[in-house]
Design a protein around this nucleic acid. Structure first.
Lengths: 340, 340
DNA sequence: CTGTTAGCGCGTTCAC
DNA sequence: GTGAACGCGCTAACAG
């Protein structure tokens, strides 16, 4: 074996005095065709050389990688942590490895798309609110026989499965509650993309805000629309700014729980009361909402759980015939606690 | 081309009326050997079929993947977000794709180790405080010609590079400051692993705590050692519990900034003052420490930046001869703000 | 100058 | 227990 190179099956075969075929059979657990002595010699040689089959060569022959890819639209989103863990857990159980790729820019999405087309994984789960893997790309990947599940409200099944959340409706319900309890100046602390041109993510949360105002005949004040919900620090300062307006808001609808938690603090630090002076409403239902004082009212899954989407993926991976594109809905609801 | 299969170079060649070799040359930008007409026909066929070279076949032939792997020990660590972004940025610039894998259990570490041995990537950056990829495995990967950089204080270079942080020393300095300013009952809010048997992560932070007590001749109270620093919610409750002790602490050293921020809130919610009644010290220097009132004192990099480690990796990836194992140190310091 | 042929990389698996 | 074909793309060598 050349120095500084990875050992190949041939190296192992030579050392064990058998053919490469025998090495392959033994390494893949089909060594029952051989005598115990041969098997042992092969395993000893494997051990001695530290042989592991090359993934490119094996993938080329087997036409599968036993890998799945998690495609994420951004970093630092707490709900994603749950998704990552649940997906890894199930993948472990089924014998797959999970590789995560980040698609937080158009260039990165191009690259991820190329990776998946090249067959880097047998399946993929896509969670990108900015929908950078668009309908056309997703359909192309599905045609390439990639098992694909997409968590998105803006795409339709087309050889892949779609998992939706009724977030616009539930946010609307929460906003109705805000209005009905007397709030009249409701601010919106959104994601940057909501309030700027460019690719839209989380647009339904802003839509719900706009529609609620229309529904109740409330005027809207553009000064009450502020960005920064993807960042705790920026959210804090954004809310601090809102409170310094001549006519500050009496409620803040935050497009994320992280933003809402920062909002609660900013309001308290400004010497005002939540919810007496200002109500706060988040989205996401993080556990962390339970430690604000008062506890955070929010919109989201009653318990963060992505196993539905994950099961669709493995079902697709292990199906003989690819199932038709399916749709599933993750239940959301308005979870009223103390801040509204 | 068989239906429902990915197109191969042969399919493209047939459609364009050329040889597969021509397809390869054109696809890889070495189409200058052909007439413009041929090139166009090939590109048109590529477009029409949606051809992308198979990554297994290409990797097998080229002996490289143009992929790098980021190996992470846990999810939800804010500093990791910066690392992920910086690594992706530099990888984009250099033409690599980044795949992240999670090694938050021994089984997952086994799997990740196997992936890397199989040659899933040309290089890897490892950031795992629990050191689940141990010295032996790291050395084995380096011998397999994987370009490897490890951020860890507990391993030594052995064909790979190591990036260290002087966290024990800097935490000691911060703790000295706490004692010198009169604190006598200092609690430690640690990671679970610090306070339980099993794989240790972040042990240096507890070490610094223990040594500071010895240095100053302070007695230690086991009731002041509590776990939960990896979770904002658990940290909040842990600190709430500490404050209910008959003799509550007059300072809390938190093994993470996330824990420290929760600590500030728990203390304020309990009606006590930071830092007058209880001082709080974090580790990590998150931006978020600037929005607590008062601002959080912490230990960490003055500005979160992992480009040093990232450059070592690309340097190694692009070197003709693998450089010897190198060591680098990320500067840390005690950043005193309002909570101490 | 344009294009093709053929061997190779490595492991898997059918047929003997 | 082995031989040999095969999966797919890359590229050196070669032919027109």
């Amino acid at each position: 074996m050349p120095k500084g190179q990875r050992p190949t099956a041939k190296d192992v075969a030579e050392l064990a005095g058998v053919s490469p075929a025998a090495v392959s059979y033994v390494v893949n657990g089909r060594g029952d065709r051989f005598s115990a002595a041969t098997r042992d010699r092969v395993l000893a040689a494997v051990e001695q050389l530290g042989y592991v089959p090359d993934s490119a060569a094996r993938g080329l022959r087997r036409r599968r990688t036993d890998q799945i890819c998690l495609v994420l639209g951004s970093v630092g989103v707490p709900a994603t942590d749950v998704l990552v863990r649940q997906l890894n857990d199930e993948a472990d159980r089924r014998g797959y490895s999970v590789l995560s790729v980040l698609v937080d820019s158009a260039a990165r999405a191009d690259r991820a798309f190329a990776l998946l087309r090249r067959g880097i994984a047998d399946g993929a789960l896509v969670s990108d609110p900015y929908n950078r893997m668009d309908q056309g790309r997703l359909a192309a990947l599905a045609r390439n026989r990639l098992a694909l599940v997409v968590m998105d409200n803006a795409v339709d099944p087309e050889g892949f499965d779609v998992v939706r959340t009724p977030e616009k409706r539930e946010c609307g319900i929460a906003l109705d509650h805000l209005v009905e309890s007397g709030r009249r100046r409701i601010a919106f602390l959104g994601h940057d993309s909501d309030l700027r041109p460019g690719p839209q993510g989380f647009a339904e949360r802003l839509d719900a805000y706009v529609e609620a105002h229309a529904r109740h005949g409330l005027p809207r004040d553009p000064r009450l629309l502020v960005p920064g919900a993807e960042d705790r620090t920026r959210s804090y300062w954004a809310v601090t700014g809102l409170l310094q307006l001549e006519e500050p808001p009496d409620a803040i609808f935050c497009a994320s729980d992280r933003a809402a938690i920062s909002a609660v603090w900013a309001i308290r630090d400004a010497g005002r009361s939540v919810p007496f002076d200002v109500a706060v409403l988040g989205v996401g239902n993080l556990d962390e909402g339970l430690i604000t004082r008062p506890a955070l009212s929010t919109v989201g899954q009653p318990r963060l759980d992505f196993t539905g989407a994950i099961e669709l993926l493995f079902d697709r991976l292990e199906a003989d015939e690819p199932p038709p594109g399916r749709e599933a809905v993750i239940p959301w609801s308005f979870i009223r606690r103390g801040t509204t």
